[in-house]
Design a protein around this nucleic acid. Structure first.
Ligand SMILES: NC(=O)c1ccc[n+]([C@@H]2O[C@H](COP(=O)([O-])OP(=O)(O)OC[C@H]3O[C@@H](n4cnc5c(N)ncnc54)[C@H](O)[C@@H]3O)[C@@H](O)[C@H]2O)c1
Ligand SMILES: NC(=O)c1ccc[n+]([C@@H]2O[C@H](COP(=O)([O-])OP(=O)(O)OC[C@H]3O[C@@H](n4cnc5c(N)ncnc54)[C@H](O)[C@@H]3O)[C@@H](O)[C@H]2O)c1
Lengths: 250, 250
DNA sequence: ATAGCATTGTGACATTCTTCACAACTCCTG
DNA sequence: CAGGAGTTGTGAAGAATGTCACAATGCTAT
């Protein structure tokens, strides 16, 4: 019983241009014209959606994909919750920030939900990325195949060391940092990765921001200072380890 | 203040097992007889301390170290807060879970505070770690020098592929998975790193747990199921990227 | 000593996040 | 087409986390 016809629900475009208006309709409206309502999902709404929720979304997507691989077409919040180890209520609440995507008594259509969340996260396109700092870590990242399959693609490699410039890694040449800002501008890059030594991370971040990057994945162990419109996420295995030992018994 | 909500100190998305709460002694007692804080609260107190707090501690340590490098011996919560981009009150509150380490009017002694937090996190020793999955990522991790300087040391490399076995990486030989459980037991290893393909991560985790590991750093994109006494932290750059694109304008 | 400044540690309060629990709906069966 | 089973979406309650603001205290200078 896993049919699950295509959801008759038209895609609630997760907002494009719509004036502010935090529409406060009465929830218990017996006449839900649905769709259109969902459609107007308040723009700028992301200012209101908790970042914790946004951070869980990729996990939902990943899990839904794994269901798709198994050709499972329908899933309940309960089942999804068991797979991820969160509560079903949390999943439903998280999704409710964006609209209504399930069917009572039935659950969610796996493909539809997955597509929807991807659209919410703007994963329905490929994001070019510049990678700064082509040492050991930079090489490893440049060779990593996992990004392409996930809406990301490294399109430029940069290093300040002129003697590293020119080397080709995974089909891309390493270029000098002085070309970074212009490249970001010309290619409309919005995402940057920092893999430079700790002490150079801030200056690199400054250049990325100057070029117009709005998202930075930072592998260097420093807290970066960036303007409010730029998002930074740290990849920091050492901190992760250091916070786990606290719990070790004995 | 400017506290751009990102670049914050937290990490992976999904929170595994909620804070373990037991042993709830002492509600708000107006008469804190409290005292010998040096004596450091009871051993079991960590059951009450929020995991968010624990996760921030490594950042404090890292920042204190950077002050030590500059030979700065004293720091106020205010100054520390500015460096890390959290509020001073949060730092003071976080530390207050463990005792009193500052001096009114003066601030904190950098060296002492840093040592203290390290002791809290059990970083006052070196933790041996086993690394499972010696593909590209495994090699990169094995060669990474950043662990040694942070209370961690990889002491065993394992791979299921017999043809990889025997190769020496960074002075350690790759060994077969069948030796994993016994090695963990014999060497009293408490920390494991998973760098196997996604589909093999769970079975690897099971073996680590069987051997007695209590902390797992997981690079594979799956949510692992482990007993409650085992802590898992995910390193997941793809999820990090996928949650940042949400905020990109346009 | 004493004044005055700086800064902690923490109750009280505020905000954010999670979970409960149930009405409302969908679908199926007979 | 009624009844039952299953599951969503969400107010309301609850738990957790974060911030305020200030008494208490240490330090320095005079
Ligand atoms: N988060 C992680 O998983 C992880 C893992 C390994 C290393 N690291 C961190 O990543 C960083 C790099 O590590 P690594 O082992 O590759 O070091 P590395 O020394 O091998 O490489 C650093 C590279 O950055 C280049 N560089 C220096 N200054 C630069 C600048 N201003 N702009 C651009 N490039 C610059 C150098 O020329 C060099 O090629 C370090 O900060 C390290 O702590 C993080
Ligand atoms: N989080 C990150 O930053 C990051 C980066 C790169 C890769 N990854 C992930 O890390 C994993 C490994 O990536 P990779 O590029 O090194 O892949 P890889 O194929 O090069 O290496 C995988 C290795 O694991 C070994 N292996 C397979 N099954 C095993 C088992 N049951 N026990 C022990 N070893 C086993 C294989 O023999 C191989 O040597 C993948 O899950 C990938 O998605 C994560």
């Amino acid at each position: 019983m896993l049919d699950c016809n295509e959801s008759d629900i038209s895609m609630p475009a997760i907002a494009r241009t719509t004036p502010i208006a935090r529409d406060d309709r009465e929830p218990t409206n017996p006449y839900r014209v649905d769709m259109d309502l969902d459609d107007e999902a308040d723009e700028l709404s992301h200012l209101n959606i908790p970042d914790v929720v946004i951070r869980r979304l990729p996990i939902y997507v990943r899990t839904l994909h794994s269901l798709l691989e198994k050709e499972q077409t329908s899933v309940s919040s309960e089942e999804l919750a068991r797979m991820i180890d969160v509560t079903a209520a949390q999943i439903r609440r998280d999704l409710s920030y964006f609209g209504k995507f399930g069917k009572q008594g039935k659950g969610y259509d796996v493909g539809y939900l997955s597509d929807t969340i991807e659209r919410i996260l703007k994963l329905d396109r490929t994001w070019g990325m510049v990678l700064c700092g082509m040492g050991k870590l930079g090489h490893a990242i440049a060779n990593y195949r996992g990004f392409q399959r996930s809406s990301f693609e490294i399109t430029g490699l940069f290093d300040s060391d002129e003697s590293a410039v020119g080397e080709v890694v995974n089909e891309l040449p390493i270029r000098p940092m002085r070309e970074l800002v212009d490249t970001i501008r010309e290619e409309h890059i919005r995402v940057g990765i920092i893999a430079t030594p700790r002490v150079n991370a801030q200056e690199t971040a400054d250049m990325l921001v100057e070029g117009g990057v709005e998202a930075i994945l930072n592998y260097a162990p420093v807290i970066l200072r960036v303007p409010a419109h730029v998002t930074v996420r740290e990849i920091d295995p050492v901190s992760a380890l250091q916070s786990m030992t606290y719990y070790i018994s004995e």
